[in-house]
Amino acid sequence: MHPAYSVIFFTTASGAGYGLLVWLAMASALRGFPADWALGLIGLGLALALITGGLLSSTAHLGRPERAWRAFSQWRSSWLSREGVLAVATYIPAAILGISWVFYETTQGAVVFASVLASVLAVATVYATGMIYASLPTIRAWNQPLTVPVYVTLALATGGVLFVFVLSLFTPLPTWAIVLPLAAVIAAYFTKRFYWEAVDESPRSLRPENATGLGHLGKVRHLEPPHAQANYVMREMGFKVARKHADKLRRLSAYLMFLVPSVCLLLLLVVSTYTAPLFALVAVIAMGVGVVIERWLFFAEAEHVSMLFYGAEAA
């Protein structure tokens, strides 16, 4: 599948934003730290900026962005529509939380309800994003049980690392605020690893013989493509990345989203409060780059069954 940068940016940014929102909301609800207005402003501001930036970027992918509002209508059947509805719905409790945190410096009482709701909706939004992909039977690499968990854990992991960074700017980091995000990073890493293994193991069961239904006559080879230049379907679904290249990128992304952030987080347990933001920042950047690569691969490695008509050997 063609890795569209707007979609990569959207899923990584909004994933991180929703993840950060969850960490902030839950931590504040559970009184993890005082409701400092600046922390609220910067933390929630960052989360909402990432979410909003992501969502806006996703409309850049649309042919008719001015009609984007129509996308909320089909929540009964469409995960994309559900994602949109949930994304917008999340703003409401998130806004309540933000307002009371920043302007009233309180995150307790009824606000806890908003925090929990924001967290649930944020996770649900990411879940819906994952489902957009996971529900497509046409793309084996996405149509996997671990696709959605990967989206959710990666959102929590990226959000977690961001959370550590933001928090480190304001207070000495409590141990839980390092260990829990570290756990999220590790969980995300293993989910992704298992996902990769599952994808690599899942059989590419369809061949041109199935696609054309001509298998009973023998092996099917594409002789004459219907058009000289690539058409939309080939440009969109026919993107291919070389196996060797992909393996290298997978390793790189694993280092960046797992190894580097984990080491940084572990170091945070020992370094001084002053240097903490620096380590956290390294973790954020590494994680960010790692996830962008991961997301790029998520598309680039995915094979679409329609390419069987165009000479792909299997899907």
Partner: peptide
């Protein structure tokens, strides 16, 4: 009404939708 999100083309196994 179409917003050109292209998701339907991803969902078609037959490559029959063209943006």
């Amino acid at each position: 009404m179409c917003i050109g999100c292209k998701l339907c083309s991803w969902a078609c196994p037959y490559g029959a939708r063209e943006y």
